[in-house]
């Protein structure tokens, strides 16, 4: 019984939040890794692209709510999501046309594009704050829990409860669907394969008749969709705040690099590695150990390795350790 209780506590405070957070990071890292694979630079504006897409979803959700449209137990944001994705795609395509394309024609070195993406970051950052303001937005509605602590206790008779929030459930389900779709697209369709080919060997792709502009177009469309989905899921699970999204850049980059930049499978693995290490290392283990250890050994302190304020430090430390031992990341990077 004690073991089961410990397991429930562990699931409630570590496993489930980490899986949800990991899915969100993975989706974000996929966007970064795709840009890196195909356009060959790290997009510093990715966090703000996520913020922009999510902002659209938030605004449309508010609009739907004012119209009285809802999805019943599910959050209205799911209904708004396609519109948000569409809007984000438009912005990203406009950015590519107005900004990035010129540098491709100049055959600019990737690091120039990195600096360009800083400029785009500034603009998007300002744009989002200009439209929706810098404050927290809570836009999750519908049923709060799939299963609540009380229900779980009644169901199992255990003294510890387990809660699964709707947003956590939706995050995981959506992430699985999106990742499955993406991998099907990249591995099974002609366009997807041409994207992988272009990422692998730009010259040879050109000689094979693959049109780079088309590849780039599809990449941006997919990245916009991934960014909006990742941002919306994160916002539903927590809240939407522009600055937080900007800060997500670090764990997202860390996830993409840990997994191996340019490798989508790596981005997903990296997302979960980062999420799990962040959550486990900053979790206070006292409650779990209380059930597992004999009474006289029960820890007096919280048994928290590092305070939650240092979660960035955790993702960063994991990153450094991985890079020291596997410089190309867990999965061999640089190939979509």
């Amino acid at each position: 019984m004690d073991f089961l209780n410990a397991l429930v506590v562990l699931s409630n405070f570590v496993l489930i939040p980490a899986v949800a957070y990991g899915s969100q990071l993975a989706l974000g890292a996929l966007g970064v890794t795709l840009i890196y694979g195909i356009l060959r630079f790290s997009n510093f504006a990715h966090g703000d692209t996520m913020a922009f897409g999510t902002m659209l979803v938030v605004l449309i959700t508010y609009l739907f709510q004012s119209w009285g449209i809802s999805l019943g137990p599910l959050p209205t944001a799911l209904l708004a999501l396609p519109f948000g994705i569409l809007g984000c795609m438009l912005l990203v395509l406009f950015t590519d046309r107005a900004v990035y394309r010129f540098y491709r024609q100049q055959k600019a070195k990737p690091v120039v594009l990195v600096i360009v993406s800083m400029g785009v970051m500034f603009i998007m950052n300002g744009l989002v704050r200009f439209i929706i303001g810098p404050n927290d937005q809570r836009f999750a509605d519908g049923e709060r829990f799939i299963i609540s602590v009380r229900e779980f206790k009644q169901l199992t008779g255990l003294s510890e409860g387990l809660a699964i929030r709707t947003t956590q459930g939706i995050t995981v389900v959506t992430a699985i669907i999106v990742v499955a779709l993406l991998f099907w697209f990249l591995n099974r369709t002609r366009t997807g394969k041409s994207m992988r080919a272009y990422s692998d060997n730009e010259d040879l792709a050109l000689l094979s008749g693959i049109n780079p502009e088309r590849v780039v177009l599809y990449t941006w469309l997919i990245v916009a969709a991934l960014a909006t989905v990742a941002g919306t899921l994160y916002g539903l699970d927590k809240t939407f705040k522009p600055f937080t999204y900007f800060q997500l850049l670090l764990p997202i980059f860390a996830a993409a690099i840990v997994g191996g930049l340019g490798n989508p499978l790596g981005a997903i693995a990296g997302g979960f590695v980062i999420a799990f290490s962040e959550v486990t290392i900053t979790y206070a283990w006292k409650k779990v150990l209380k059930y597992l250890l004999p009474e006289n050994l029960e820890p007096s302190s919280l048994m928290q390795l590092i305070s939650t304020d240092y979660k960035f430090a955790v993702s960063f430390a994991i990153l450094v350790i991985v890079l020291l031992f596997k410089p190309t990341g867990l999965f061999k990077g640089k190939s979509v």
Binding site: K107, V111, V112, E202, L261, G262, K334
Partner: peptide
């Protein structure tokens, strides 16, 4: 535009343009 100042930082740029 082709001057990268010798930067070879693989976290931000991917070689093989």
């Amino acid at each position: 535009y082709q001057d990268d100042r010798g930067n070879k930082d693989a976290t931000i740029t991917k070689p093989g343009t």
